[in-house]
């Protein structure tokens, strides 16, 4: 076979697979959001989605959750990655333990935290056992929106920090030690070395970690569903409700399209903010 065309032949199966099982169904969904069953282009579904009473709350909740969770996760992951990379012994064990939540599905994670915050859960038993409360508290009731929000935050942080951690640990491992030593000799203390050397050199990994994490944050669903039910509407929950409960796949498709748009916008934003100038790539 011609060595010039060989790479394309090798890529072809994956390309065909993506087209058939991703691009095609995706275009069907996108079409549903902007066209009627008769195939007439329309904005009525997008308008109906935007004017629905739950839309604002779902959008706000999703953005708020992302804004609350991702920065905390980023700081935690950076702290943990720095600690892990400084360790000589037991490094792998610690890393494995920290990444255990990665192996648990998001619904299972939601249920684990439900078992903690539930009316008959660990937290109530513990507080009751300590004599701090006289009867179980409904932490996750509809009148406690803030508690639900905090519970979802905790569950998300517990569940999904490790994905950033793994990427950052790998990234820190790629930074040659000499850069830090040079910074140390030329007068930078620990904090300066972190902010002036490690962080800038970690940009490519930070980019990947943030993009991945932010996209996943916009898709938050199972954890919220387990802990908050319908008390904390989020965008992905609306997709589910419209598709399966309200049986309107046009509106569900509109929500899906909106999530995609937000994801793309934030991906571009993150890539732009953490862009490495030409020539400044790590060599």
């Amino acid at each position: 076979m011609n060595p010039r065309t060989l790479p394309y032949w090798l890529l072809a199966p994956a390309l065909v697979f993506l087209c058939v099982f991703f691009l095609y169904p995706f275009s069907l969904v996108a079409w549903q959001a902007i066209a009627t069953d008769e195939g007439v282009l329309t904005t009525q579904y997008l308008q109906r989605m935007a004017s629905h009473w739950k839309f604002d709350r779902a959008l706000t909740n999703t953005l708020l959750l992302t804004a609350a969770v991702v920065p905390i996760q980023l700081s935690l992951a950076l702290l943990m990655a720095t600690m892990v990379s400084k360790m000589n012994r037991g490094r792998d064990v610690v890393l494995y333990i920290w990444t255990i939540p990665l192996g648990i599905s998001d619904l299972a994670a939601g249920l684990i935290w439900l078992a903690i915050f539930d009316q008959t859960g660990f937290l109530n038993s513990a507080l009751f056992g300590l004599g701090m409360i006289e009867q179980p508290v409904t932490f996750l009731g509809y009148q406690n929106k803030t508690t639900i929000f905090v519970a979802v935050m905790l569950a998300e942080i517990w569940r999904a920090t490790a994905i950033m951690l793994v990427i950052l640990v790998a990234g820190i491992g790629l930074i040659p030690k000499e850069y830090n030593e040079a910074a140390e000799v030329f007068g930078a203390g620990r904090w300066k070395r972190f902010t002036k050397v490690t962080l800038p050199l970690l940009k490519p990994s930070l980019q990947t970690a943030l993009v991945l994490r932010v996209i996943l944050a916009f898709e938050v669903f199972a954890v919220v569903s387990a802990l908050g039910g319908t008390n904390l509407p989020v965008l992905m929950g609306e997709v589910y409700d419209w598709q399966f409960k309200l049986q309107d796949s046009h509106i569900a498709a509109s929500y899906a399209l909106l999530i995609l748009a937000i994801s793309i916008a934030f991906t571009l934003l993150i890539m732009g903010l953490l862009r490495t100038p030409k020539g400044a790539q790590t060599t």
């Binding site: 040659p176 040079a182 790590t282």
Partner: peptide, 18 residues
């Protein structure tokens, strides 16, 4: 190191790429 009044040239230069 920073309090020793030294400067150093490293084998791989360690010129910060960023």
């Amino acid at each position: 190191p920073k309090d020793r009044g030294i400067a150093m040239v490293f084998q791989n230069y360690a010129v910060f790429p960023h």
